[in-house]
């Protein structure tokens, strides 16, 4: 434990004093301020026109302002935070010859990797929490909205999911920093994977779905084909953690959302119900809707960390 704590403290200290963190935090604070400001302005206009909504405060996070909503923003930038915090965690120590010194101290070897991972998670938690608090403050100031208990709980769940999501990217980048001896290679590899999961998978899902179950615009297509097409598209795009996270948090932030499925995949009764009865779900039910997403998100985070843990423990360290 003493080793874990020492490494954790050193890493936290490094994160918070590094220029990298300061620049990253400034960037994210700036974007989230603009996003929430735009969302707030939109929301104020909407609320005047809109019939009474039950949870206006949460709309601060789900309304796209100028470009994207807060949820979309975390889905897109969260990976960047995670990757930047972790991509050089092990191979930098190796390149500087400090890793061998670290493991020749009377600590268990896993203290090094656990300490680094936990420090990353801690840093991200502080970052995300402060962003949420800033937006909450904006909501109070610009729109004059006060969050209710239910909304605070939902935001808390959103925060936890976001931390897991970014932790997945930290674990991934730590894995790369163990696998690749060169810092540049691991930075490029993690960047490439980010772009792949963000851009290629959704496009690939479309291509795959149209190849397996083609929909022709001019001819009449069977309903089964359309359903098959939609289902393939959905399942394939879930391979991207961004999609996984977006769908999971959408249901948490928006209590009106009672399924993650697209409208094509709903049965007739379901369609009727969702158009006739527009009532918000309680938080427990919202969680149930995205339960599979949450399980997978937590699972990939843990698996990713477990793999890096194993690789690191079995690796021979000479420098």
């Amino acid at each position: 434990m003493q080793g874990l704590y020492a490494v954790f403290r050193k890493e936290i200290c490094d994160h918070f004093t590094s220029y990298r963190f300061v620049i990253l935090f400034a960037l994210i604070a700036m974007i989230s301020l603009i996003t929430s400001y735009m969302a707030g302005i939109h929301l104020r206009e909407d609320l005047e026109a809109l019939a009474k909504t039950r949870y206006p405060f949460l709309m601060l996070f789900s309304t796209p302002g100028a470009m994207f909503s807060m949820v979309q923003f975390v889905a897109f930038f969260g990976p960047l935070i995670g990757l930047v915090l972790g991509f050089d965690s092990i191979n930098r120590e190796r390149a500087h010859g400090t890793l061998i010194k670290l493991v020749s101290q009377p600590i268990y070897r896993d203290a090094v990797i656990n300490g680094k991972f936990l420090a990353g998670v801690m840093t991200v938690s502080v970052m995300l929490l402060s962003i949420i608090l800033v937006i909450t403050g904006f909501g109070l100031a610009i729109v004059g909205l006060v969050p209710g208990v239910e909304e605070i709980w939902r935001l808390f769940v959103f925060l936890i999911i976001s931390i897991f999501y970014v932790s997945f990217w930290i674990a991934l980048s730590i894995l790369f920093s163990i696998l690749f001896k060169s810092i540049v290679t691991s930075a490029l590899a993690s960047g490439a994977l980010w772009i792949f999961l963000w851009l290629i998978i959704p496009v690939g899902a479309n291509v795959l779905a149209n190849a397996v179950a083609p929909i022709n615009a001019h001819e009449e297509t069977q309903a089964e084909t359309i359903i098959k097409n939609a289902r393939i598209k959905e399942i394939t795009s879930l391979a991207s953690p961004m999609v996984l996270y977006s769908e999971a948090t959408a249901a948490i932030i928006d209590p009106m959302l009672n399924t993650t499925r697209s409208i094509t995949l709903m049965g007739p009764m379901e369609k009727l119900l969702s158009s006739r009865f527009q009532n918000p779900l309680p938080l427990g039910q919202s969680l149930l809707v995205v339960f599979p997403h949450l399980t997978v998100l937590i699972a990939i985070t843990l698996i990713c960390f477990a793999v890096s843990y194993l690789v690191f423990m079995l690796q021979e360290i000479r420098t």
């Binding site: 500087h96 010859g97 400090t98 010194k101 020749s104 009377p106």
Partner: peptide, 14 residues
């Protein structure tokens, strides 16, 4: 490792 001090070749520092 508690009893042995090891100074590696080309030891690194922060």
């Amino acid at each position: 490792k508690r009893r042995v001090g090891y100074l590696p070749e080309n030891v690194g520092f922060y």
